[in-house]
Nucleic acid binder design. Structure first.
Lengths: 225, 225
DNA sequence: TCAAAAGTGTTAATAGTACACCCATGA
DNA sequence: TCATGGGTGTACTATTAACACTTTTGA
């Protein structure tokens, strides 16, 4: 076989990315979902997705798609899985790679989200999604939960500075179960990469709660998972 | 945009699978690698791979590729990651999805392996591989190690019946560290889905070692991870 | 009878879990 | 002064880790 034929005898496929965008609000995880005002599957709910373009890596495609919707360009994102079953997109054959992204829900671009007819939906209220997007959400959630147990990825869902009460509520939302306050704070105290900023947040209590931040340098030195 | 243009305006790409095939022999993990007698990269070492075909799911492509090399069609396989960087294949743009497979190293088809100029290489002796295959091996190994700590996937590297000494050596190879024999056997004894067959293996000792097998039904009832 | 691998329990250390009250503050 | 969320310590339980000798048997 001549070298140039090595590639050309094989078929090509559309390659897409679909993004599971997690936010955290009012003590619950939320997803940013599209109520599609375009074909195919107009009128139904779906994840934000897009096709990989020439000259664009798979990771870049995922970043672009999330930025198109949220205006945010430096989110924590991880590849979850690639879905390649035959009938998964009823239109044409498309291989799609799912990525999850973690967003500070106070920061996204409301104009863009509105323009795409997207909405934040609390995880337990997630509607049925098109194609195999339900499965993608399930897989992404499981992967994100696992990641959250081995490294502090959840912090990407909070603002720069946060209180321990917020952090605990976040982890309760991620893990889906209540956590003992004293045990939780003991564990956090042992993590020197979560440090007091000195600031105090008085929006939720008269007494005020100490603000903390994540110190990436200290973290990278400690673990590196 | 008319519906039919939704797909057609986007580019298509070659989609491939690359398979990290693990075996276990002489107390060490091994990889089944090709010493390529074909282009591109003839003469260099690589993983076994292949292009996804029309009418074939991504998982099916991975199964086919592994079967072409080993003759085995019901291996334990898991998707690891999809690699989509621009220059990853210097020939043309190819998106490749890596899968790992676990093989009982006594069972593969020697004719096929020979025909492909493939060789079992002990993991620490792995040569440099083409493209991004080094990274694929690293990612697959990490994923397989993680899986092995949460469910007994390693058993797929052993014959149907095995001794506890074999099983311990396997886990020492997977985890890359020695394990205390008494603690190990205590842990296995607590797993009712690893059961004595009644048989005795006398090939390694005069005394003989009890043979065990994995009972899938009991396992599925217990956990289901 | 001895070499070689198989098999067997106890104790100590560590990690994880359960649990309830006082504190500071502004309205 | 009191309602509200913030903050704190100890005892118990479960899990994991360390550790060395006896058994069986065929050559």
């Amino acid at each position: 076989m001549p070298p140039e034929a090595y590639y050309s005898i094989h078929p090509k496929f559309h390659s897409a990315v679909d993004c599971i965008i997690f936010g955290f609000d009012e003590g619950e995880l939320s997803l940013l979902l599209l109520q599609r005002n375009f074909e195919p599957a107009k009128g139904q709910w779906s994840l934000m997705g897009g096709f990989v373009q020439e000259g664009e890596s798979l990771d870049d495609a995922a970043r672009r798609v999330v930025e198109e919707l949220t205006g945010l360009d430096d989110l924590y994102m991880r590849q979850v899985h690639t879905y390649g079953d035959l009938g998964r997109d009823p239109g044409e054959r498309v291989l799609s790679t799912a990525y999850y992204a973690l967003v500070d829900i106070k920061k996204y671009d409301r104009q863009l989200v509105k323009a795409h007819n997207a909405h934040w939906v609390k995880l337990p209220d997630t509607p049925h999604l098109i194609f195999d997007h339900d499965r993608m959400v399930k897989d992404a959630l499981r992967f994100m939960r696992y990641q959250a147990t081995v490294k502090p990825v959840g912090i990407n869902l909070l603002p720069e500075e946060f209180t321990l009460t917020q952090l605990q509520a976040l982890y309760e939302a991620i893990l889906g179960e209540p956590i003992d306050k004293r045990n939780f704070r003991k564990r956090i105290a042992a993590m020197d990469y979560i440090e007091k900023t000195g600031g105090i947040d008085k929006t939720l209590s008269r007494k005020g709660a100490a603000l903390y931040r994540f110190n990436r340098d200290k973290y990278d030195g400690n673990f590196k998972i």
